[in-house]
Design a protein around this nucleic acid. Sequence first.
DNA 1: AACACAGGCAACCGCCCACTA
DNA 2: CTAGTGGGCGGTTGCCTGTGT
Length: 566
Amino acid sequence: MTSETEDGIVSNNQIDSPLGEEGNYCESANGGVILKKGPWTSAEDAILVEYVKKHGEGNWNAVQKHSGLSRCGKSCRLRWANHLRPNLKKGAFTQEEEQLIIELHAKMGNKWARMAAHLPGRTDNEIKNYWNTRIKRRQRAGLPLYPPEASLQALQESQRCLNIDRIEIQNKSQHDTLQSNSYGIPNVMFDNLTPNQSILPYVPELPDITASSVLMKGLSSFQYGSFMSPIMHRQKRLREATTLSSSFGGGMKNEFHLFDQFQDVDKAAQSFGLPFPFDYDSTTKNPEFFGENQGSHTLANGNFSASKPTSEAVKLELPSLQYAETDFGGWGPSCSPSPLIDSVDTFIQSPPTGTVESDCPSPRNSGLLDALLNEAKTLSSAKNQLSDKSSNSSTVTPGDNADSSALNICVTEWEDYGHPISPLGHTATSLFSECTPISANESSFDESPSSETFTGSKRKFGCSAECYVKSEPVDQTWTADREKESSTWLDITSPDALLDSGWLEHDSAHGKDQVIVTDAMATLLCDDSSSEYKQMAAGASVNHGWGHSSCSWNNMPAVYQMYELP
DNA sequence: AACACAGGCAACCGCCCACTA
DNA sequence: CTAGTGGGCGGTTGCCTGTGT
């Protein structure tokens, strides 16, 4: 807590001594010097500012030696970065900043420092606090974390990323070395770059559906895999504070920088559950889209954030948007809500002990999903064939009504997914019903209207959001067609449903419950890889959930592990 | 008006990782 | 290989403020 208000009024008892006699002290690591903790005094600030003026930033541990300031280096660095640094903005975020934060978070996840790089004068901590507060608010209000605009933008960019990924992989397969360009990124990647991509200027536009995007499309249901990326691969975190701007501008150090960024963008968009290629217009014009996506967002709201080591219960840290939807639209006639939420949530809370990591050297190692993808890619030599097959199975046609509905998540659909044993403690239906269609003018991202609508008093937030939100009118655009669609939704939270749907088959002929991955999924995974997994799956005894698999569960690809039930 | 309570927020701490000498 | 350093991020703490009683 600062000792100084924004007007420069210094609080009492903290003015005179740089040591701040009221402060806490701790033993220094070196020399037994007592270092102060706690709030900074203005005198300390002055010392630090003076030091930085003289010596510049960096070498923070020298501050204490040279200036006599009884603060550890890190404390000095943080103080400088968060409070004393020139050009720091103080005060509330502007609407533009809020919007940018939302967009950035949709793309990056909890990459506060990187987000801060896009917000001059703002610090990562400031953004984090803002976001966490915002999350709480929206969770209570049963609102989605992201407005549709941010979702769509992130989605579009993610599609490009997927395409880039495809190209990169193709490039690798065609050239063992990356000598064609020093970064291993085809020149074509930048040819169609949209110059107005303020958020992700490095993301080029690439046309068409691709093998990897098809995979993503089909597997984006398992976005949790990639959501865990920052957790599971934290050790692989790359330094990229400057790469957002520098990578495209030529400052990129290597291809991994670039692709790590893609990975983050990737994660954001995998969750949208939108058909590919994504038709922006058809969806943005469809009011249902926004409202219905909320359902998943609401779900995600309930799952939000934080990370733990992989070996323990894992909480999600990526934006809810990123695990907002499963994308059965890519597999079936339309996009679906997130039937995996429950099961995946369970999965995440009790992940398999093994680490699903691909040996594939792809730089896009973003977690379970990427691991799967990499495996699939590695195993598959017929990348483009997959695209054909998958596009056949995913009959989404941009622009038509079916497509629009494919983007939608309807209450009734959610009711289909209301799993009685949801570990979330309530069904997806109830979660969805808590959310309210987002209005176009909510693009201000101000939650207060919702608060008023639902509560009239923040105090009332203490009550479950559904107490207030359920009174909101249900999506009136529900149609018979979509209701029909809903009957085709696959509830893969239940192995039975998988079995019923044909995705999995009992092999009762062998006298015991076995699961065989059907060709449909095989197609999705591409034939080569799936055949391998088929064998693995065939050896797994189902026992209502694959947790009792007799084959090596840890060796199962993430996509199958996701089916584990509570 | 006083009080209790809950939420918002700023700021710090601890852990971890990447980089570098 | 190791220690030092900088940096990122999750979590926590405590104060402030608004609201209801």
